[in-house]
Design a binder for these strands. Sequence first.
DNA 1: GGCGTGACCAGAACGCTATATTGGTCATGA
DNA 2: TCATGACCAATATAGCGTTCTGGTCACGCC
Lengths: 231, 231
Amino acid sequence: MRGEHDGRADRILDAAKELLLRWGYRRVTIDEIAKLAGVGKGTIYLHWRTREELFFAVAAREAVAMLDAVAAAMRADPDEIMLHRYMRRFYLEAMDRPVLRALFTRDAETLDKFLSSPARKPLEGAKLIASRDYLRVLAGHGLLRAGLRPEDLDYSLPTIVFGFFAIEPLLPADVTLGLEEKAGHLADTLRRTFEPERPSAREPAAGEVVEIFERLSRDFKDAAYGGKHGS
Amino acid sequence: MRGEHDGRADRILDAAKELLLRWGYRRVTIDEIAKLAGVGKGTIYLHWRTREELFFAVAAREAVAMLDAVAAAMRADPDEIMLHRYMRRFYLEAMDRPVLRALFTRDAETLDKFLSSPARKPLEGAKLIASRDYLRVLAGHGLLRAGLRPEDLDYSLPTIVFGFFAIEPLLPADVTLGLEEKAGHLADTLRRTFEPERPSAREPAAGEVVEIFERLSRDFKDAAYGGKHGS
DNA sequence: GGCGTGACCAGAACGCTATATTGGTCATGA
DNA sequence: TCATGACCAATATAGCGTTCTGGTCACGCC
């Protein structure tokens, strides 16, 4: 592993993230990032091809942290692999990380053009929310409603989850619900809509599921640091 | 009732609606509306106080048409009062009406600033989706899950429904689902999340529910035509 | 005399040019 | 071989004169 190389990438990503959250996507310049990271501007282009790819990497690294937290929780408690438990944690972890929160709630003030930037495609939440592999394992172990095939969720599942994120900027100021409660409502909806009344045991599926999320985490990690160079 | 007065209002609203859909909110001027409606500009201000209120009236009149269709369907078939059936029809009727579709899918190209305009508040979908009166009647007649109180839906119900509308502009072009199928997924989600497994009979509640929607329709009608003058 | 109208006005929006900024490159030097 | 910052084309911004447009109201027609 290229230790120092990745260390420098992290310093640059730290700088980009900090400025992104402070000033918003539009106002952050490559020069400022380089200055804050203590590197020359050209160095940034040794890691990523374009400004867009750099910010994509910022998001990808956040996704890695989230996925690692998810996988750790699943390792600690197999119940956590259930769709509604996963999405509950997904929601809480995403809302706790300012960059991901901005992405998922579509915070235009912070992200501006980045919201509709083409470089974002590979990261699209769909991958995270409706990972086919994950859903296939759930279905195979009787953890989805009988007769529900993974592709049946292609539309409904991301749509429901999306709603819980995207509603955020529209909520009236006097809503008193906390994050945990909102996450609970989301989980409840998904459990009732997609899960069996008496699900099978989780343990047999837990190993496979954890592996899927570990792999997903690695994929995002490669995407974050490997923008220009190979693995 | 002031027949000719309202007739003229309708001609103005027709003109405003037509231009809105053709050109988008930003490009439509009061002068053009007046010209197309065959009235003087000042006349428009005899009906509504501001441009915003005029366009709000356009939307309100569409909502009236939708609510009337909803109430008619409920009169024809009491099953239609069930939450999941209502929201299914709500979705289909709204998506069939370009103005409402633009509103609910938050079509920025068409609506521009109108999306965040203060005059829109009284119309907010929340009123339509989570009418407390309606939900109270459902709960009172055993048509909501046991223990579910109307206010428990304040957050979840509009959030889920919102997701199904707001996801529209984000769907990849190759989604093959038709409107009916999407409506079906929405209905399924709401039925499983909020309704009892074996609901009571609908007939006892049907009359009350129809009345609620008829009243809601009248409210929106007043709002549409009564911007300046009383009833 | 009450209703409808379009000339009128202030302020917002637009187009245009000159200027400044910035993403991305690459010759240079460590 | 790797890192750098001066450099450049392209885009964004600022300033400003002009046009456009929402909203008003004095007038005149029915």
